[in-house]
Design a binder for these strands. Structure first.
Lengths: 291, 291
DNA sequence: CGCGGTGATACCTGCCGGGTATGACAGGGC
DNA sequence: GCCCTGTCATACCCGGCAGGTATCACCGCG
């Protein structure tokens, strides 16, 4: 009778997450850079130690059980937390000042975000008496949450309602309306204002779709990967998009922006991990709150 | 040249957290049930692999560097997340239903909380068509956050502003005022209402103090560990306390409750880990939102 | 009935996590 | 000054286990 262990090594979590994502021991083993048999054994040991069946192996394939789904989610979170611990510790580097570390901050911002607010924030913070260096990490549309969770970033600019603030502390910075961006020559471009219903049902201009957390909502419109592509598609008269007011700064002369009366307002937040105790971060938040 | 690893085993985190908490290799090793030399070696390996100095060893003792403090905080979070993964997976047990697990929920409530709201919530949920079993876990004044983080609980009743909702999703349930609880015979007990200033400065009745996250604020009043002790001290005329309105249900005839005009309102929330995807939890939240 | 592809089993080996014994060094009595 | 005590680091050894290779058992399919 071996002692029943109630802990779980990072390695075992990595193995299980790989198998649960691939649903295939061979491919998972390859991804992990190891042979398949030890991986099979490791997962069996894991199941025995947890006393729980995680995978349903039957002919031709592997499926997750309910417990397996739970462990996949919770395990990813635990792996993220571990990776964050490593990254943030490394970033704190040779800092040996007591009473809370000071040091460089990594700020995650979507590349397409308004640079005006960012510039204002960075300038104001740089003017503070003992400000630290801030590294700006440009990312895609919905990556900020992941970057904060796994420690690649310390703080992020997020845009409600697209980004979820769940699990983070945050400070609201600005609120703005949204506009419809149309080809300049389109009949609707002449209107003073529009409603969401107006732009949703234009027969010749399907509404552009961008990914939320990696997946696209179904619809007739084109799938948008970056801002340049969107601008081009609008200019070509192939789509219409709903974007925040501040996006006007990147519009072309071939574009027209019409305010939307009933679109939900976009709130830009400064967000950071809920448990953070960095003094440097606190300074940045204080600056942001005064904007 | 060994391959630079950028991961970190749970075991190493446990070791470091133990040393960082004890600030003493010998005691930490004892706590971990191992000898001191391998622990020393493990920490050295950890420092080498991270490329960061975590501990300042000089004559007579060990201190944390800035990076060490970061790793202590982040490491605790990672260990909690790992423990949560184990507990929640075990709890999901033999559940093999696809599309999200169903199963028993653990609800954390402080023992001193009002039972009326809890009863209403549990009754309403039990009346739902496909409700699951709910295990109520009674805890101390500020433990709910920890219970949610390390997976011993799935959902909790929290009371703002005493509990911090940072890092959790939540749904506000009720708001109530606060009252001052005095010995029945005290002159102030005859008043219709009181202000915080009134009860803070009573010379013969120092304000009771209870712990926030394990530590007591400084002050002249007695340190409170549980509700019975508090009731006794008030009845004896040794202290006065500020408590939510609903606490009237446990008052004695020797007590008098006087409403406070300027005390912050107490909001009871249902709170759960931000990333939770349990269908059972969703059902409970839905029920709570309808209350 | 072979054949490809799956995960499980058997068995071996080398590494490393952990143990004991001991060293280096700083303080603190007397 | 001395030794004694308490601290962490070093040296060395050993056993278990993580990982590899070879192979099996099973299923579906042409």
């Amino acid at each position: 009778m071996l002692p029943a262990v109630d802990t779980l090594e990072t390695r075992e979590l990595r193995y299980f997450v790989a198998v649960a994502e691939e649903l295939h021991f061979g491919r998972a083993a390859e991804r992990l850079g190891m042979a398949q048999p030890p991986l099979s054994r490791a997962i069996q040991q894991l199941e025995r130690r947890l006393g729980v069946c995680l995978l349903q192996r039957d002919r031709r394939g592997v499926r997750l059980t309910g417990a397996g789904e739970v462990l996949l989610h919770e395990g990813r979170a635990a792996l993220d937390a571990t990776a964050a611990a490593v990254r943030r510790t490394r970033r704190a580097g040779g800092d040996d000042s007591p009473g809370g570390p000071r040091g460089r901050l990594v700020l995650a911002v979507k590349a397409a975000a308004s640079h005006e607010l960012l510039r204002k924030l960075l300038d104001a913070y740089a003017a503070e008496p003992d400000s630290a260096e801030i590294e700006v990490l440009l990312c895609g549309m919905c990556e900020q949450e992941e970057l904060l969770r796994d420690g690649r970033a310390d703080v992020a600019l997020m845009h409600a309602p697209w980004n979820s603030l769940a699990g983070f502390d945050s400070e609201a910075l600005t609120t703005e309306g949204q506009v419809a961006v149309l080809p300049a020559g389109h009949p609707l471009a002449a209107r003073e204002t529009l409603s969401l219903a107006d732009v949703r049902d234009v027969p010749d201009l399907p509404l552009a779709r961008w990914p939320t957390h990696g997946t696209y909502a179904p619809g007739p419109g084109p799938e948008i990967h970056n801002q340049t592509q969107l601008a081009q598609l609008i200019a070509l008269g192939r789509t219409v998009a709903v974007v925040p007011d501040s996006a006007r700064s990147w519009l072309w002369t071939e574009h027209a922006a019409v305010p939307l009366t009933d679109a939900p307002p976009v709130v830009t937040h400064l967000a950071w991990p809920a448990h953070s105790r960095s003094l440097t971060l606190a300074g940045l938040v204080r600056t942001a709150a005064r904007l």
